[in-house]
Simulated scan of single mutants.
Amino acid sequence: MIIHPPNLSDVVLATRYLLAQPDSAQPERCRELIERVQEAARYQEITGRAHARLGDGSIGSYVLRLPLAPMPAQLNEAAFKALSLVLEQFYDTSFISK
């Protein structure tokens, strides 16, 4: 299965998605996001086509289909927490070669 490695815009998009979620739901929403991207990558590998709802297996193709909060020009506490959660969970997945 080919998982597109995240780039900086993917990290920002995922952070914006989490900022649109209640604080208590953010860890689970981040895990779900990663699972959906992996599911889309498997679908594309099997069919050769992007999934209609989940995209092509890239983070951006999925997250851009979801509600996003604006990214604050100056990072506040909520943005720092969401950003650190995204980085931590992306690091803990197969997105990152270790």
Results as ranks from 00 to 15, higher is better:
Ile46Met: 11
Leu87Phe: 03
Pro5Val: 09
Pro6Asn: 02
Gln44Ala: 09
His51Gly: 09
Pro22Leu: 03
Gly55Cys: 11
Ala79Gly: 06
Pro6Met: 05
Gly48Arg: 11
Leu66Met: 14
Leu64His: 07
Phe95Cys: 08
Tyr62Cys: 07
Ser61Glu: 09
His4Glu: 14
Tyr17Asn: 00
Ala69Trp: 02
Gln44Tyr: 01
Arg65Ser: 08
Gln89Phe: 02
Pro72Asn: 12
Gly48Tyr: 05
Leu8Phe: 02
Glu45Lys: 10
Gln26Ile: 03
Phe90Gly: 08
Gln21Met: 14
Ser24Ala: 15
Asp23Pro: 06
Ser84Met: 10
Arg65Ala: 15
His51Cys: 10
Gln74Lys: 11
Ile2Leu: 11
Pro67Ser: 14
Ser24Phe: 04
Gln74Gly: 01
Ser9Met: 05
Leu83Ser: 09
His51Arg: 07
Gln74Tyr: 00
Ile34Phe: 00
Pro72Lys: 13
Ala73Ile: 06
Leu75Lys: 05
Ser84Lys: 13
Thr47Arg: 08
Ala78Ser: 15
Gln89Thr: 07
Ile2Thr: 15
Leu66Tyr: 07
Gly55Lys: 04
Asp56Glu: 03
Arg29Met: 15
Val63Met: 04
Ala69Thr: 05
Ala41Ile: 06
Asp92Ser: 14
Asp23Cys: 02
Ile59Ala: 06
Ser84Arg: 15
Tyr62Thr: 04
Thr15Asn: 04
Arg42Tyr: 01
Met71Ala: 13
Arg31Thr: 14
Leu19Met: 14
Ser58Lys: 04
Pro70Gly: 05
Ala73Gln: 08
Leu64Lys: 13
Glu28Ile: 12
Leu66Trp: 10
Leu19Asp: 05
Asp92Arg: 15
Gly48Val: 09
Phe90Asn: 04
Phe90Asp: 01
Val12Thr: 05
Leu13Tyr: 02
Arg42Asn: 10
Met71Lys: 07
Pro22Val: 03
Ile96Trp: 04
Asp23Asn: 03
Ile96His: 13
Tyr43Glu: 07
Asp10His: 10
Pro27Phe: 00
Ser97Trp: 00
Ser61Cys: 09
Ser24Cys: 02
Ala41Cys: 07
Ser24Asp: 08
Pro72Ser: 13
Ala41Trp: 08
Glu39Lys: 13
Glu28Lys: 12
Asn76His: 11
Leu87Val: 09
Pro70Tyr: 00
Glu28Cys: 02
Phe90Met: 04
Val86Pro: 04
Thr47Gly: 05
Ile2Trp: 09
Arg31Pro: 00
Tyr43Val: 13
Phe90Tyr: 13
Ser9Asn: 10
Arg42Pro: 00
Tyr43Ser: 13
Gly55Ala: 10
Ile46Val: 15
